[in-house]
Amino acid sequence: MFKILQYSFYDLVRSRWSYVYFLFYLVLGFALLFLNNSVSKSIITLMNIIIVLTPMIGTIFGIMYFYSSREFTELLLAQPIKRTTIFLGQYFGVSFSLALSLILGLGIPFTVYGLWESSEVINFGLLLASGTFLTFIFVAISVNIALLHDNRIKGFGYAILIWLSLAVIYDGLFLISLMVFEDYPLDKFSLVATMLNPIDLSRILILLKLDISALLGYTGAVFQKFFGTNMGILTSFLILLTWSTVPVLLIKRIANKKDF
């Protein structure tokens, strides 16, 4: 699998889009630090961007790479290589190269600014970790869609739709349900609803770590009570892990049944 991973990784690393993605984070990192003049404020701004952007880029890159490398895949399928090796190798290749753009792109400006001397190292690490998790999750989801749909337009449409529903529509429905049922106790409901969506879960994890949960009011207190404990952190981590492993297992399953 390592050979395939290597080829996919280099293939993407050499492509123009990975540089654009890397440069985007680099410029963003420097610009935010310059404008805010504070590491912690920059992290808060970055959070809002990363939470929405990494899933989107993961989705688009994932689906684009798998459709455009179909020839390569067919070539590999006729070689003495296990099927799951081919697909998992490509999946990890894409995910690693995207995660690398994110980590280096933001890591460089923050290191230059003196992140390591500040107290925000853990928060920054958490930010990058959630970005990496989200990248892996959404690349895996888009690979599944690419395997299920040979029609590129359809596949692209579904992938964007899934991103949109988890990043935007889910929150909308969540807020509407909070308003409709405001007469009932909703703390448990909102806790569960937040944990089921990887994007919301990452956002809350970072917000709570940044100690600005007072902004969230009473629910914030409930969240703080839950996520502040080791149990809460462990549960959230397990949920993110589930979100990133289940689609990978599905890739294996679908790939083994597909005709090429």
């Binding site: 293939d11 490398s69 020839e71 390569f72 067919e74 070539l75 006729a78 070689q79 003495p80 083994n256």
Partner: peptide
């Protein structure tokens, strides 16, 4: 079925020569 090592003994020429463009 579900094996792959046997492909070591097969050379295959696909019908349409399609390769990754940037290689």
């Amino acid at each position: 079925s579900n094996q792959w090592l046997y492909r070591k003994s097969i050379n295959y020429l696909p019908q349409i020569a399609r390769f990754p463009d940037n290689l």
